[in-house]
Design a protein around this nucleic acid. Structure first.
Length: 304
RNA sequence: GGCGUCUUGGCCGAGUGGCUAGGCAGAGGUCUGCAAAACCUUCUACAGCGGUUCGAAUCCGCUAGACGCCU
């Protein structure tokens, strides 16, 4: 049997975790997580990571394997996850990936081009320059050092410009010269399934899940990492809002309603990402897992 | 009952005769190492009716509603 990766996507709160556990147990396999916030062990509640008991049912990778203090990014994730999938495939022809982060899922399914690692000081310096000199200076530099990127990148988006420039400065070559746009070959086939629901229902589920998080100790969790609030890993829905409550700028009530709002917006952004992939087969969120298993078995036969 | 003030898009809010304020919310979207991030696009409203004027959210009148004061 060929090696397969089953990718499960869908907006936050729709039930990806629960489905993945059922599928993993049915196929007697393991789960690769592609969620850019569930990596961090200090913040399990606000990121809706699988619970301890869920984690004990099925072996998970890339859940709580990092500290918020560790620098981490898609590039490293791609390498580690591909290697992990390879390892898992030695034991089982089928592996499950659950992903909430479009870029991270994409990195596994489509692959990223190879970029040299550049000194992180370059980015620090660029961020500093953004503050002191303004984005126009950076745009101008990009126009000179990489006209191709200048034409394709969103010029008002500082993160994009800075990423391109850090490569330009660090390698003395244009960022765009590293983009091969070649479809990469993985050693496995992918079957993508998505969970969907009506928007109003997704929003309802988000609201009640946030209330549950608060009940389950999100405040304490956020308080415990408050001192690290400037870390990128904590630029995260559920934490950044509570930090504003802790430092007195917001009431708790406002912070909670902002968490709900930002989670809804996050879910929307997930949808625009996942909707793009026309290979994804969509199921209603409450579909009987048995139907999904049937679908998968049928697809497996087709592709084997 | 009398007098006065007010009435701008889902919300806040500027605008006193001609030039689509703006913000928030909502909606849509982008995405190759910060991605639960960052960024982009989008909603043309002036309480109603009538009048003045080449032209009214803006001036005048009436009507309705809100608030305040007086009897």
């Amino acid at each position: 049997m060929d090696k397969h990766l089953i990718s499960i996507v869908g907006p936050t709160g729709i039930g990806k975790t629960s489905l993945s556990l059922k599928l993993a147990s049915y196929f007697d396999t393991e789960i690769i997580s592609a969620d850019s916030r569930q990596f961090y062990k200090e913040i399990p509640i606000g990121t809706a990571a699988p619970t301890t008991s869920e984690l004990s049912l099925v072996k998970h990778y890339f859940i709580h394997h990092k500290s918020i203090k560790d620098p981490y990014n898609v590039g490293t994730f791609e390498k580690e996850a591909i290697e992990q999938i390879r390892q898992c495939h030695l034991l089982n022809p089928m592996v499950i990936m659950v992903g909430g982060s479009g870029l991270y899922v994409n990195a596994i399914l489509e692959g990223l081009d190879e970029f040299p690692i550049v000194d992180s000081e370059i980015r620090n310096k660029l961020n500093q320059e953004l503050i002191t000199s303004g984005i126009e200076i950076l745009q101008k530099e990009l126009k000179e050092s990489d006209p191709i990127s200048y034409d394709s990148i969103e010029l008002k988006n500082p993160q994009r410009i800075i990423r391109a420039l850090e490569i330009c400065r660090g390698t003395k070559q244009p960022y765009s010269s590293f983009l091969k746009n070649k479809k990469i070959q993985r050693g496995f086939k992918t079957i993508s399934i998505g969970l969907k629901a009506e928007r109003s229902l997704i929003y309802e589920r988000i609201d009640s899940r946030v209330d549950n998080m608060i009940r389950n100790g999100l405040l304490e969790e956020a308080k415990s990492v408050f001192e690290y609030r400037t870390l990128n890993a904590l630029n995260t829905v559920g934490y950044k809002e509570l930090f504003k409550y802790f430092d007195g700028t917001w009431t708790l009530e406002l912070a909670i309603s902002e968490i709900k709002k930002n989670t809804r917006r996050f879910a929307k952004r997930q949808l625009t990402w996942f909707d793009k992939d026309e290979k994804t087969h969509w199921f209603e969120y409450n579909t009987d897992p048995e139907n999904i298993v049937n679908y998968l078995n049928k697809e497996l036969k087709k592709t084997s």
